[in-house]
Design a protein around this nucleic acid. Structure first.
Length: 595
RNA sequence: GGGGUCGUAGCUCAAUUGGUUAGAGCAUCGGACUGUCGAUCCGAAGGUUGAGGGUUCGAGUCCCUUCGGCCUCGCCA
């Protein structure tokens, strides 16, 4: 075959006169009867080929048989385009190649969709024909950025003396956490491996093994329903370090994130990144992953409205609930219908039974700013002024409130805040606001199970000053966990781990995991802790989410070459699929369906 | 498991209260054309309206069932 001398995005004016060969796909085809133009495409760009019947009648004739997405090799001389014939839309737009010879490397069926217009095509079709979808520059750019991120990450950890070490995919199932993907064992009849939800225990064992600094870019598997930003199989940048405290781990990884931002976006991230306590995040933003690109903090106004005529508020507060709200700058432009339908329905998705609202308006007579709405009459003038003050509200703002338990109020207000921030364009789309969330509680009380549950995971260490509360007050222990959040998205999280077997046993005890259960599930790990485990801690980043943010997409499937649908199916390969009876027999498995 | 939304030509969409033979743009195929770059012009072909059932004189449209995509609640230590 005619082998390429250049890529399709490479040639410029200064290559004038060079004899070159390009390989690629026929991107578009323009036949003028006389001249034929072909845009040839590869991952690097597009170059215009010209076929002239005067100079090369045979090749010109051959060119008229070409079709879109055929694969060809073409040789000829680079020449500048004439005056006014340049195409500023493509990098190679100042030149073209007068073709002297072509070779058809492959023909192609008419594609199921046009490569050029695939951004308008249903995602279902794109996934079925991923190889066509992938030919689009947008998709190629995302794959390229993903590659570059992993390259930067590997270089960063290598130069910081970390070793990349692989851990098993065929592991042991544990009932904690997400649902496991199971893999039947042929050799051990009736037994199963589980695919790892993360390499958590292995990386801790590596620390016991003296590896000291480990990282891995590793696939993890959780058999839960996907979301726009979640897939059953996803990739973590997994890290663990010995002889470190929280500040050490945070320091290394904010520098890693800065290196990625610098390398991909050319942006300097100012270090150290800001930190915020879990409590502050939940109080002010309703979630542990606040979007700090805009302010609009949530405010508790229970103390202001405990004594008013509005029964919804007083009733809620009497039952131990709260009244909490936010003030949307310029939100008064929402009509009453918008508020009572769209916004209220939105909040209802998050269990809020209703949305109380005030528009902040100027009183015509007094000239004073006051609150207007159908419930305004239930509040005294003094209360209204106090509410305005609490929210620092201005004329034209909209105050929205939820009266419910604190948990429900936060659950509804947090996404409402994010939605309003976006709708009202309160932030710069290109901004990236990082924050480390720290001071997480070690446990939260699980009302249903009537026991404590780890907020992070059961291997997270308490802060040293709270260790004695393991005996006296487990609900108020602060952990050494940390999450890194950017623009309201959690991109990584980790903790300093428990490295003393006694403390680990105590935590299992509080989690209502019996000695026998702990032994069955984590026996190997507990044993390892007995053999001189160093103090250690680590973190894991979600690579997919990182790449989503860096490429500006809100669809995780856009940053995965071969993603799965919401039912966990691969539309390209049709996995999962039934298997031969012989395969089941070999595994001693029988399938049954029950409803 | 729940809620929402979508499914009509290869693709993106349209089709009045249920009413004649389901249309358009792009793509495809054929022809024309001296520089285009979303080429242009002329012509042709292209449909199990996701599937199944029902109501009706008549269903893309209404009802039931079902399949699939997406968003979301639950779930995701």
């Amino acid at each position: 075959m005619l082998k390429r001398t250049h890529s399709c995005g490479q040639l410029r004016l200064e290559d004038d006169g060079k004899k070159v060969t390009l390989n690629g796909w026929v991107h578009s085809y323009r036949d003028h009867g006389n001249l034929v133009f072909i845009d040839l495409r590869d991952r690097d760009g597009i170059t215009q080929l010209v076929f002239d019947p005067q100079s090369q009648p045979d090749v010109h004739k051959q060119s008229r048989g070409l079709r879109c997405e055929w694969v060809i090799a073409a040789s000829g001389a680079v020449r500048p385009r004439g005056e006014g014939l340049e195409n500023p839309k493509i990098d190679t737009g100042k030149i073209e190649i007068l073709i002297e010879k072509i070779e058809i490397l492959n023909t192609a069926e008419t594609p199921a969709f046009e490569i050029d217009g695939a951004d308008k095509v249903s995602e279902e079709l794109r996934l079925k024909h991923r190889y066509l979808d992938m030919r689009r520059p947008e998709m190629q750019n995302r794959l390229k950025i993903r590659h570059k991120v992993t390259k930067i990450v590997r270089d960063f950890f290598d130069s910081a003396d970390f070793w990349e070490i692989e851990t098993p995919f065929l592991g042991k199932s544990t009932p904690e956490g997400a649902r496991d993907f199971l893999v039947p064992s042929r050799l051990c009849v009736g037994e199963f491996y589980a695919l790892p939800q993360s390499p958590q225990l292995f990386k801790q064992v590596l620390m016991v093994g003296g590896v000291d600094k480990y990282f891995q870019i590793v696939r993890c598997f959780r058999d839960e329903d996907p979301r726009a930003d979640r897939q059953a199989e996803f990739t973590q940048i997994d890290v663990e370090m010995s002889f470190v405290d929280m500040d050490d781990v945070i320091d290394v990884h904010q520098r890693m994130v800065a290196a990625v931002w610098e390398g991909i976006l050319g942006k300097k991230v100012s270090l150290p990144m800001r930190r915020m306590s879990y409590k502050e995040a939940v109080d002010d933003y309703g979630v542990d992953r606040p979007d700090l690109r805009f302010d609009m903090k949530l405010k508790n106004i229970s103390d202001l409205v405990g004594d008013c005529q509005f029964k919804v508020f007083t009733g809620t507060i009497e039952k131990g609930g709260i009244v909490k709200g936010l003030c949307a700058p310029g939100g008064a432009k929402y009509s009453r219908g918008d508020i009572e339908k769209a916004l209220t329905n939105f909040a209802a998705d998050y269990d809020a039974k209703g949305l109380a609202w005030f528009k902040v308006a100027k009183n015509e007579e007094s000239g004073q700013v006051t609150l207007a709405s159908s419930i305004a009459k239930f509040f005294s003038d003094e209360q209204k002024q106090q509410i305005i003050e609490r929210f620092s509200a201005n004329e034209g703002d909209l105050i929205l409130m939820v009266a419910d338990t604190e948990a429900v109020a936060n659950k509804a207000l947090a996404p409402l805040r994010v939605k309003l921030g976006k709708d009202l364009e309160l932030y710069d789309e290109d901004a990236h606001e990082f924050v480390w969330i720290v001071d997480f509680p070690l446990f939260e009380w699980d009302e249903k199970a009537q026991r404590y549950d780890s907020l992070h995971h059961p291997f997270t260490a308490p802060v040293p000053e709270d260790v004695e509360k393991l005996e006296t007050d487990p609900g108020n222990i602060c952990s050494q966990a940390y999450d890194i959040v950017v623009n309201g998205s959690e991109i990584g999280g980790g903790s300093i781990r428990i490295h003393q077997p006694q403390m680990q046993a105590k935590v299992f005890d509080l989690l209502n995991i019996s000695k026998q259960q702990a032994q069955d599930r984590f026996g190997f790990f507990l044993k390892a802790l007995n053999y001189g485990a160093p103090p250690h801690g680590g973190i894991a980043f979600g690579l997919d989410r990182l790449v989503m943010i860096l490429t500006g997409t809100d669809n995780i499937r856009d940053v995965i070459a071969f993603p799965k649908t919401q039912k966990g199916q691969c539309l390209l390969t049709d996995a999962p699929s039934p298997v031969e009876q012989a395969q089941l027999d070999e595994l001693n498995l029988r399938t049954q369906t029950h409803h």
